[in-house]
C-alpha cells in the first residue's frame, strides 16, 4: 500500500480557489468586451488582445528572470489585469503605448511588490494612470462608436460625455449634432469612452455574475455608487444649473466599471465589511469631487488609487469579536 497523508485539520476544502475566482472575473468581463467590440470594431479587439498578451508575457518574463520563481501565469491573474487595462484605454490607443502600460501595470503595479496578493494598488489602474499622465493626448482622444465595422485607423474621435461636461457647454460635433448622448444611449453604450466602460448594461450583467458566484460581495459596489449618488445628488439639489444629476454621473465614464470590477479587486480592497463600506463610499465621493472640481474630467481611477492607499488603515477596523462585549438575555 502506498503512503498515507497526514496533515492538520480541516481535511476538506471549499471548491473555490484563486484560479476559479479569476476565471469567473474573466467571464464576467466578457459582456463588456463584446459590447465594446460591437461599438468600436476591430480597434477594441486589437487593444484587448495586445494588452492581455503583453501582461502575460511581462509576468512570465519577470517571474522567470527577475524573481526566479515558479511561473504564476497559470493563476489567470495576468489575464484579468490585461483585460482591465484594455478596458481603461481608448480603442485607438497606439500599440506601443499600450505595451508600456502593460509593463508598468505588471512590473511596477504588481510584480515589484512580490506578485499576486502583495500589491497595494490595483495593477491595471497603476498602468492606466501612468499612461494618462504620460500620454494625455493619446489617452483622451476617444473614438466615436461607429459599430462593428469601425475602421482600424483614422477613426473619428470625439469627447466623452464627461469631457463635454468639462468644456461646460453644448458642444456640437463636426456634423452639427449635439454631442451629448441621451441616457438610453449611455445605458447601452453608444458613447465615446474607454473600451470597457461604455455599456452600463453589459457591466451590470458582469456584476450579476460576480455577485451570484459570490466572488465579490455587495458592499463595495453598493457603497461606492451610494457615495457617488449621494454626493452628486446633494450638489445637484443645491444648484441644478451648475451641477449635473446623479444618473448622469452613474452612467458616464468609468463609474460602473470601477465600482464593479476595479474597486472590488480583492487584493487592494479592505477585508472587513465596515472597511469595505467606507472604502466604497469614499471612492464614490472622491470620484464626484474630482469630476466636478478637479482638472481631469474623469476621476474613478484616481479615486480608487487614493483609497487603495488607505486600505491598510481601513484594515485596522476590527470585526466584532465573539464574546467581546457581553449582552445577554
Amino acid at each position: 500500500m502506498s503512503l498515507l497523508t497526514v496533515s492538520g485539520s480541516p481535511h476538506v476544502h471549499d471548491k473555490d480557489n484563486v484560479t476559479r475566482i479569476m476565471r469567473i472575473v474573466i467571464l464576467a468581463m466578457l459582456p463588456a468586451f463584446l459590447m465594446s467590440a460591437w461599438m468600436f470594431g476591430m480597434g477594441a479587439v486589437k487593444v484587448f488582445a495586445v494588452s492581455i498578451a503583453a501582461c502575460i508575457l511581462f509576468e512570465w518574463l519577470i517571474q522567470k528572470f527577475l524573481l526566479k520563481g515558479k511561473s504564476t501565469i497559470g493563476d489567470y491573474s495576468a489575464i484579468v489585469t490585461g483585460m482591465l487595462l484594455a478596458f481603461n484605454v481608448p480603442s485607438n490607443l497606439p500599440i506601443w503605448i499600450l505595451i508600456i502600460g502593460a509593463l508598468i501595470a505588471i512590473g511596477i503595479g504588481k510584480m515589484s511588490f512580490g506578485g499576486l496578493g502583495k500589491n497595494p494598488f490595483n495593477p491595471a489602474l497603476v498602468g492606466r494612470v501612468f499612461l494618462l499622465i504620460s500620454w494625455p493626448v493619446q489617452m483622451t482622444s476617444w473614438p466615436k462608436p461607429l459599430g462593428i465595422a469601425s475602421p482600424l485607423t483614422d477613426v473619428i474621435t470625439g469627447p466623452t460625455p464627461l469631457g463635454i461636461l468639462k468644456e461646460s457647454g453644448n458642444v456640437v460635433d463636426a456634423m452639427g449634432n449635439p454631442a451629448m448622448p441621451d441616457y438610453v444611449q449611455m445605458f447601452t453604450g453608444q458613447m465615446a469612452g474607454s473600451v470597457g466602460e461604455i455599456s452600463a448594461i453589459a457591466l451590470l450583467i458582469g456584476v450579476a455574475i460576480l455577485l451570484l458566484t459570490r466572488v465579490i460581495t455587495w458592499h463595495i459596489p453598493v457603497s461606492m455608487i451610494l457615495g457617488a449618488v449621494l454626493f452628486s445628488g446633494a450638489l445637484w439639489m443645491v444648484d441644478p444649473t451648475m451641477f449635473v444629476d446623479p444618473i448622469f454621473h452613474l452612467l458616464t465614464g468609468g463609474m460602473l466599471l470601477g465600482a464593479f470590477f476595479m474597486a472590488t479587486d480583492m487584493v487592494s480592497s479592505p477585508m472587513t465589511k465596515w472597511g469595505m463600506l467606507i472604502f466604497g463610499f469614499m471612492i464614490g465621493v472622491l470620484t464626484i469631487l474630482i469630476r466636478t472640481f478637479g482638472a481631469y474630467p474623469e476621476g474613478v481611477s484616481f479615486a480608487i488609487l487614493i483609497m487603495n492607499a488607505f486600505v491598510p488603515l481601513l484594515n485596522k477596523i476590527k470585526p466584532k469579536r465573539f464574546g467581546e462585549e457581553v449582552k445577554n438575555g
Binding site: L3, L4, T5, V6, S7, G8
Partner: peptide, 22 residues
C-alpha cells in the same frame, strides 16, 4: 524512510505537535 506524507505548514514546531513525523 518515510512512513507517511506530511502536508501542511512548513514548520517543524507545528509538525512536532501534529505527529511523530514521517
Amino acid at each position: 524512510p518515510e512512513k507517511f506524507i506530511y502536508e501542511g505548514a512548513q514548520s517543524c514546531a507545528f509538525a512536532n505537535n501534529l505527529s511523530a513525523g514521517p
